[in-house]
Amino acid sequence: MSSSLTVERHPETRPPEQRTHRQVSTLPLVAPSVIALLLWMIVPLVMTIWFSFQRYNLLNPEAREFIGFGNFTFILSDPGFWISIGITILLVVSVLVITIGLGTLLAILFDQEFPGQGIARVLAISPFFVMPTVSALIWKNMLMHPVNGLFAQITRGLGLGAIDWFANFPLLAIIIIVSWEWLPFALLILLTAIQSLDHEQLEAAHMDGAKPLALFRFVMLPHLSRAIAVVAMIETIFFLTIFAEIFVTTGGGPGLATTNLAYYIFLKALLEFDVGGASAGGLIAVILANIVAIFLMRSVARNLDT
């Protein structure tokens, strides 16, 4: 980016004896972090893979045995699993569309100068700092409750009746809650990206008679495309494993209506105590997340100047 156009001193410009002297000592500095992360990544992952090939239930640990791909064939033929995949995709895609669509518009709005802009921006990004269990319960009880919730009170006051969100539109309710939590994130990142846009360029295009819509389409959007990609990928990684919001509101129900992949695995693991099945599901989640991660890593690597 243009802001990082400082003069880079390369290590070669240092006196050679100093460079070699210093470099020998860097390994002990880096090693603790690397070893800690290596253990954290490898040990549980190997265990997950190991368990996923076993019949292993914590309620009946004696019956533990190797069953090859048994857990995978069982899970892949479980309609509940495919429902959870569908719900995961629906959840991820709709929250992505909402947060990035609205986030872009709001970023443009908060890029304008107006009185009290700083305070307004702080208020707008606040939901991101609210812990997920609080957000979910506030929305579930005080806003979306079918009798005493504020929404129901307002619509009933207008003579429209009330919506029982978590009975009739449970997934939509979750989507709204998660969107509220993450819209500020998209707004914050995209606003930062917009502010790095050269405003003189915008002015010039404006002077040349470009309409606001054309400005947005041909100047703003291309500039934002990278930031949007980064937001989309980071959000996807978080949204693939949305858990707390479901845990405290619907518990995956009614039926399986809000059971996403993370919740499906949780149900298998800590309610059915089916270690093998949960591990197989977990492995599938890891693979899905990695597909997304590859794209994110590429985008970050491109921006890394070491």
Partner: peptide, 15 residues
């Protein structure tokens, strides 16, 4: 290091 962040927590819940 960054890539370890991509490991979904639910994938290693059991272990």
């Amino acid at each position: 290091m960054l890539s370890t962040k991509m490991l979904p927590s639910v994938g290693v819940l059991v272990p």
